[in-house]
Simulated scan of single mutants.
Amino acid sequence: MRILLWHVHGSWTTAFVQGSHDYLVPVLPDRGPDGVGRARTWDWPASVTELPPAALREQDVDLVMLQRPHEEDLVRQWLGRRPGTDLPAVYLEHNSPDAAPCTQRHVLADRSDIPLVHVTHFNELFWDNGRAPTTVIEHGIVDPGARYTGELDRAAVAVNEPGRRGRIVGADLVETFLPVAPVDVFGMGAQEFVASRVATAGLPADRLAGYSGIETQDGMHTELARRRAYLHLTRWTSLGLSLIEAMQLAMPVLALATTEAIAAVPPGAGAISTDVRQLARRLAELMAEPELARACGQAARAAALERYGLKRFLADWDVLLDGLAR
């Protein structure tokens, strides 16, 4: 099957393109949001081909995966075909509703021609999906391997643009953990966020550091795994793939008991709670007892491999895609 999809979410797409299909991704000269092309920081197989819009019209596309509302118009413009009518289509919703939980209607809510796929049961529950046919295909990731060493007595957070996203991603909670252990923040905008907090709040620079320049996902995984524990502080999200990656790295994780994290993180993997002080106390224990941290990390890895393994993820997608292509 030849599948057209946009490079929107790098970690998710990296897992999806490991399947047995051929994948077409649009590319534009500026590699902007509608034409990022092939990944440059993730490892993608040769079955992924980047093509400019002018070349897409000549391609035999079997199915299009929509991930943003305006992509339907792009398909009409670039391929001259209507998704759901003369081209099989599926709409993948990565996110939880951001405007009005429980009452926000999905853009496909009034349609039944394009199946709507959610990546978590939480998302399916909280979106108003209307009459759109829905299903859930939970995340799966490429196993990064059990790299955990925990050699650094520091905690890790991985989140993009913490300064802009603020409370949503728990940026305000990072400082809660500093009396217990130094915290390293990884991701786009991490260095700017840390510099701002150090300057405005007078935080000690040796206990809060930011890392934004790691070139590859593989390199980030190695660095994360050197920290003693992983903090998942996002209040409202679908389910951060960085959390699953940390678990498969065999890191102990301390997570807010919000959204889908409740289903993803078993208690033996570290701790999960809405009480940030409880998470801080658990972090102190992991800092004092490296072997306890290692045992929690092994439990985290086992749980993440079982629920978010790549083989199950690709098999679930093949069942759906085969049905749509018939």
Rank of each mutant, 00 (worst) to 15 (best):
L4F: 08
E215V: 00
A54G: 10
A303C: 04
H221N: 15
G84D: 05
V61L: 11
R207F: 00
V276G: 02
G323P: 10
E260G: 04
L224E: 01
I272Y: 04
T259S: 14
N123M: 01
V119M: 07
S196G: 09
A263E: 07
T13W: 03
R294I: 12
D113C: 02
R228Y: 05
P29Y: 08
E161H: 15
M1L: 03
R227E: 12
S96H: 13
R277Y: 06
T41V: 11
Q191V: 06
A46M: 03
A269L: 12
A295C: 14
E58R: 11
R282V: 09
V117F: 00
P144H: 05
D316G: 13
E223Y: 00
S238P: 03
A109P: 03
G270S: 04
L79D: 07
E291C: 11
P29A: 14
R111G: 02
Q278G: 08
A280S: 01
S47Y: 02
A171H: 08
L256P: 05
G10L: 13
P204L: 00
L79V: 01
G19Q: 05
V276F: 13
N160P: 05
L292M: 12
E289C: 13
G84M: 05
A225T: 00
E151G: 15
D30Y: 10
F126S: 06
G270P: 09
A300K: 06
G145C: 03
W44A: 11
A46E: 13
L233Q: 02
T49Y: 05
P179H: 10
R228L: 01
E161G: 09
